[in-house]
Amino acid sequence: MTERQIRLLIVDDHPIVRDGLRAVFESEPAFEVAGDAADGVEAVDRAVALGVDVVLMDLRMPRMGGVEAIRVLREKAPGIRVLVLTTFDSDSDVLPAVEAGATGYLLKDAPRDELLRAVHAAYLGQAVLAPSVAQKVLGRVRTPAVPVEQLTDRELKVLALVASGTTNREAAKQLFISEATVKTHLLHAYAKLGVRDRAAAVAEAYKRGLLG
């Protein structure tokens, strides 16, 4: 999958969940479980100290919840990707996590292979949203926002490909443009949507009804 192992930190307040996730990833040569944590405070400290690539983050935990931990990690170590793994997919859980800086949002009932792919995608900086999460974002009450016309047709096409998990290189091939042009379209879309990364752009686009 990658030339080197993806270093992973597992964060959940239930020991049995941490043990189960550790068993899943330790059986895969592409991943290295660098450690685990039982709450957000431990998560931030260990993620930084261990220099992990991806944090698999639960949301509702004692001392410090997942959303606050994501926000602190974004400030202390912006290069670390955070993939939320939780049982909750309500608007009040999903949107704050994405806005705090989560690269993706997955539910705990996800199949094993989907979980592995999601962590790898998060490592690459690709937006990962569970289908039900995307539907929650799409179905929430839409507020007045930037008109659709302010995003060009090409920007919308690139954003749609990103939402489906397509890499910049793959998007460039499909649209017959350079990878640099894809990045430019994304940067323009980020600016118009008022976001800073791929996951937030996808969530905001669903929220505004630009994707669906």
Results as ranks from 00 to 15, higher is better:
Ser132Leu: 05
Arg112Trp: 15
Arg112Asn: 00
Arg18Leu: 01
Val44Ile: 12
Ile10His: 04
Leu56Phe: 05
Arg63Asn: 00
Val84Gln: 07
Asp13Ala: 09
Thr86Phe: 09
Tyr105Ser: 01
Arg142Glu: 11
Asp12Leu: 05
Tyr105Gly: 04
Asp45Met: 02
Glu3Leu: 10
Val67Ser: 11
Leu56Gly: 05
Asp36Met: 09
Ala180Ile: 14
Arg117His: 12
Leu56Arg: 05
Gly20Tyr: 13
His185Phe: 12
Val72Gly: 00
Arg169Gln: 13
Leu21Gln: 09
Thr152Leu: 08
His120Asn: 00
Asp13Thr: 00
Ile80Arg: 07
Leu210Asn: 07
Leu187Gln: 14
Ala37Glu: 05
Ala49Ile: 02
Arg154His: 09
Leu107Pro: 01
Val54Gln: 01
Ala203Gln: 05
Arg4Gly: 02
Arg196Cys: 13
Phe31Gly: 01
Glu179Cys: 01
Ala191Gly: 15
Thr87Lys: 10
Leu187Cys: 02
Gly35Ser: 00
Ala145Pro: 10
Leu107Ala: 04
Arg196Glu: 03
Leu106Arg: 04
Ala163Gly: 11
Asp197Ile: 13
Arg7Phe: 05
Ala191Arg: 15
Ala127Ile: 07
Leu211Asn: 09
Tyr206Glu: 12
Val24Asp: 10
Phe176Thr: 06
Leu175Pro: 08
Ala38Ile: 00
Leu95Met: 13
Leu85Pro: 04
Val119Arg: 06
Gly194Lys: 11
Arg154Ser: 09
Arg196Met: 12
Met1Leu: 15
Gln150Val: 11
Ala118Leu: 00
Met57Val: 02
Ile80Thr: 15
Gly104Trp: 05
Ala38Leu: 13
Ala163Pro: 05
Val119Trp: 03
Lys157Gln: 15
Arg154Phe: 07
Ala122Gln: 10
Pro78Thr: 11
Pro111Arg: 13
Gly79Trp: 13
Asp12Lys: 01
Asp12Cys: 02
Leu95Thr: 08
Thr167Val: 10
Arg63Ala: 15
Val133Met: 09
Gly165Cys: 04
Val148Met: 04
Asp153Val: 09
Gln126Lys: 12
Glu75Val: 13
Val128Lys: 07
Leu210Ala: 11
Glu149Pro: 00
Ala34Thr: 10
Arg112Val: 09
Thr2Tyr: 13
Arg117Gln: 11
Pro96Arg: 02
Glu204His: 09
Ala163Phe: 12
Val202Ile: 07
Lys183Pro: 03
Arg46His: 03
Ile6Tyr: 01
Pro29Lys: 07
Ala118Thr: 04
Thr181Pro: 01
Gly212Asn: 14
Lys157Pro: 00
Val72Asp: 10
Ala203Met: 12
Pro29Ile: 08
Arg154Asp: 10
Gly139Lys: 06
Val195Arg: 03
Val137Met: 15
His188Lys: 15
Val24Glu: 05
Ile6His: 03
Leu151Ala: 06
Gln5Asn: 10
Asn168Val: 00
Val195Phe: 06
Leu175Met: 14
Thr143Gly: 03
Glu68Arg: 03
Val72His: 12
Leu187Arg: 14
Val148Ser: 14
Gly79Asp: 14
Ser132Thr: 06
Val41Ala: 12
Ala127Tyr: 08
Arg71Asn: 13
Val41His: 11
Gly40Asp: 02
Pro96Gly: 07
Leu161Met: 15
Val52Trp: 01
Ala205Lys: 02
Ala189Glu: 13
Gln126Gly: 03
Glu32Pro: 09
Pro78His: 12
Glu99Asp: 10
Thr143Glu: 14
Lys173Met: 13
Ala38Met: 10
Leu56Val: 00
Val48His: 03
Val54His: 06
Leu138Val: 03
Leu73Met: 14
Ala171Arg: 01
Arg112Ala: 08
